[in-house]
Write a protein that binds this DNA or RNA. Structure first.
Lengths: 194, 194
DNA sequence: CCATCAATGGACAGCGAGTTCAGCAAGGAG
DNA sequence: CTCCTTGCTGAACTCGCTGTCCATTGATGG
């Protein structure tokens, strides 16, 4: 026993988990989250059934494990691949997030599809709310509660993201969506906080 | 054969459907949509299993049937129980909708719970988008697409509604939420359309 | 080189969806 | 009021998916 930080001591374990994670993401992009069965997963990952349950309690547990990368992208720092210029303006998560979603379009679409009822939207919203809370100036004593503002911004972002991903006709770039997001959300923000 | 407009000719049919609809709503308020099984439904409604499938293809079909009341509330006219004054200002659906949700809190909460992944949010959003489209002045040729604006408003409303229903600490009234909604969304709207 | 630990795979019980059918009861038309 | 249409019944059945168990095999790290 290596007593490493609670993860991946054995190469076999790492291999198995990576295979399962990739299988889930691939299958989600194809069929949507809830259409994916455990039988699908273990077949795609080429892993025994009992092996799956050795690592994860169920499908949702595996999904949680897959979400860590996403959390890392929004969460702390000013986003890894912010690209050009300084992302020191407010709501810095927006553009990197949109770019990443644009690159993984089928997967991102499956994740934000409301009809398919992914529990994922809830997770994403929570992460967003925390990211925004960290960015907003704390001293906001208006008639509008801070929590309401947080959910307002997160809800707007998710609404635009979902619309963009499922829109077949017009083909906007991540940069355009970012502009639209800011154009819509900034006036309301200014009106409420300083 | 009476050839009536495709609905409820026989009293037995009406009785059975009403029983099933009420059962679904009651059970959703208790357990959430996806925890409700067909066995639950027919037991609560006191109806045979095959009877259920005589009327609905599945659970989702029954849910659709339950949603007509909701569509009626938002859809056409300036909302049935608008109450005081003239609701001729923009976004007239907001206050009646919030009042209704406040009266049916447990049910409304179950419907908007993202963790429980109700397909219902998708339906509601679609109805909202159409209602807003009907209200917005059609001539909006800005840099921001009309569709984006529609989803922006609907997304904001749903985000605030969800937050409000699941907020345990602060207890706001429907009127307060309506005010917050307008305070946040109006500046962005004005900035984009005329 | 060896003890450990993960992977295997097949069998199993449990649950929920959706179907079928022969028999029964209630409704509506005349 | 009568009769025939129509909907309800309820139980049994198939099917697919979940989650568990266990004896066995084989790779891994010390």
């Amino acid at each position: 026993m290596v007593t490493s930080p609670e993860s991946a001591t054995d190469r076999r374990v790492r291999r198995t988990r990576r295979a399962l994670q990739e299988a889930l993401l691939a299958l989600m992009a194809e069929k949507g989250y809830d259409a994916v069965t455990v039988a699908d997963l273990i077949e795609r990952a080429d892993v025994g059934r009992s092996t799956f349950y050795n690592h994860y309690a169920d499908k949702a547990d595996l999904l949680d494990d897959c979400l860590d990368g996403l959390r890392a992208m929004i969460g702390p720092g000013p986003a890894p691949d912010a690209g050009r210029g300084v992302p020191d303006r407010l709501l810095g998560f927006s553009l990197p997030f949109l770019r990443h979603a644009g690159e993984q379009r089928p997967l991102a679409r499956a994740m934000t599809d409301r009809a398919k009822a992914t529990p994922l939207l809830g997770h994403v919203e929570r992460v967003l709310v925390e990211a925004i809370r960290a960015e907003l100036p704390s001293g906001t004593a208006g008639p509008v509660p801070v929590e309401a503002v947080l959910h307002y911004v997160a809800g707007t972002f998710l609404a635009l993201l979902t619309w963009w991903l499922n829109d077949e006709k017009t083909h906007h770039t991540p940069e355009q969506i970012d502009q639209i997001f800011r154009a819509l959300v900034t006036p309301g923000l200014r009106a409420v906080i300083g």
